[in-house]
Nucleic acid binder design. Sequence first.
DNA 1: AAAAGATACATACAGACTGTATGTTAGCGG
DNA 2: CCGCTAACATACAGTCTGTATGTATCTTTT
Lengths: 192, 192
Amino acid sequence: MQEKNTRRSNKSRSDEMRARLINAARALFVEKGYAETSTPEIVKAAEVTRGALYHHFADKTDVFRAVIHMEARQIMESIETYAAQEGEDPLDAGSRGYFRAMAVPGRVQLMLIDGPAVLGVTEMDEIVEVGGVASLREGLEQALPERGSKDVAAMAIILSAAFDRAALEIARGGDEDRYLAAFRSIWSGLTG
Amino acid sequence: MQEKNTRRSNKSRSDEMRARLINAARALFVEKGYAETSTPEIVKAAEVTRGALYHHFADKTDVFRAVIHMEARQIMESIETYAAQEGEDPLDAGSRGYFRAMAVPGRVQLMLIDGPAVLGVTEMDEIVEVGGVASLREGLEQALPERGSKDVAAMAIILSAAFDRAALEIARGGDEDRYLAAFRSIWSGLTG
DNA sequence: AAAAGATACATACAGACTGTATGTTAGCGG
DNA sequence: CCGCTAACATACAGTCTGTATGTATCTTTT
């Protein structure tokens, strides 16, 4: 009864506040898109004031940036949690893991549609670079040792974009197996 | 000297006004992005008032829509003007024609970055559908007659996304020949 | 060809939003 | 226990969007 629940460390206050704002913002960005979401709406959903938001974030795009970083972390976690099922082909495992990670509601909208427009392609690439095209490039380098590294890098970039688009289509209701099969065809054509 | 140059038909007035607004808007959308461009800026650049803009367009996104439609028409014209050089492989010709069309300054930003965010992927797909994935799907259907049409459609979608990304990289200064080679590898792997 | 109506704008306004400046309260180091 | 700073809250200035309303210029009808 006498818990003095107002007594908390600054760090825990900040962390919780940031989390509240980021979660509220994510939900609204997904529901209405970045442009149609206002900061008054965000703070209302988080049940705080705009002062809190502008204390923790430089501006509205900075809130979006935080949402994207969180999303990117969760995608990486999801992928490495999935890992390969026993006896599954590594390409299939990787593809399915990525599609599954991107199937979380709103993720495609945030990462593939609004992200590039709000933060720019360059920054989005930096954020997802490590888990995204990098692992694909490594796989290609192993499978195609005769190709130059520049050529492999270009191939990884366009294949990564193809994976992104497949994830988008699957999130829209497209048939995952069909896209999986398409990538298997491409891959075996390249390596076979 | 007595030309009464104020005497013009309504249609020509409208057409010229729309063109002025669309051109001014395109330049600003490319320079600053859609979100950072305001309607006061657009009408100032076009040397008219906001009344004219809101007479011809429902809202700001409708101006953007008009810019995108114009851009899509020009892309199709550019592609069919290019056609195939004598003796060039049809895939190379098609790829190069597309890359060249998308190399016009600002085009990648409008069609691949801002377009999907402002108008949505669905509407963008409808706008560019005919010239975009449709021709690619036809080519694939001819090259891979044993595949089902659903599978071919999925393949066309992801390859189209790969072409888009390649166009983006080339517009950023990437090496066109390298991406051309990558698509040749993929294509020969699929059809060979 | 003159009235009647529609079209093509221009101007004025209401509401909302962004970012900043300025307060106030609560933790924290010495 | 005291100055300092972090974590907010409140108030404000400037700008933007979309609409409502006014006016001039065609266009159509009789």
